[in-house]
């Protein structure tokens, strides 16, 4: 039951306005037909299920409908950062 800051609406809102959309930084392979079955399966099915600080995608589904990224601790569920796609997340 998180409070999530939407970087587009620029407001902290109840989790029920949002939907999770999987791990962040899962890039679609540039040339799917040229890669091995294993590499394709890795993209389609395998996720890190990381314990600790983790970047994931959320969508403000009952709000502005924008997708954005959230860094969240999967241990404490503390939300550490939120970022729009393309934003600098290095700091």
């Amino acid at each position: 039951m998180f409070l999530i800051h939407c970087p587009y609406c620029n407001e902290e809102r109840e989790q029920e306005e949002f939907s999770p959309a999987g791990e962040a930084f899962i890039a679609r392979p540039e040339a799917p037909e040229d890669i091995s079955d294993e590499a394709w399966a890795d993209y389609v099915f395998y996720r890190t299920n990381h314990k600790g600080d983790h970047w994931e995608q959320w969508v403000h589904s009952n709000g502005c409908r924008k997708y954005f990224m959230v860094e969240r601790s999967t241990i404490t569920h503390e939300i550490l950062k939120v970022a729009a796609f393309g934003a600098d997340i290095s700091e």
Binding site: S19, R28, V59, S61, R65, K66, Y67, F85, G86
Partner: peptide, 13 residues
């Protein structure tokens, strides 16, 4: 609609 938005916003912006 949501899936199409996801492709446009995340992979194919």
């Amino acid at each position: 609609y949501s899936t199409l938005e996801m492709w446009l916003q995340t992979e194919w912006n």
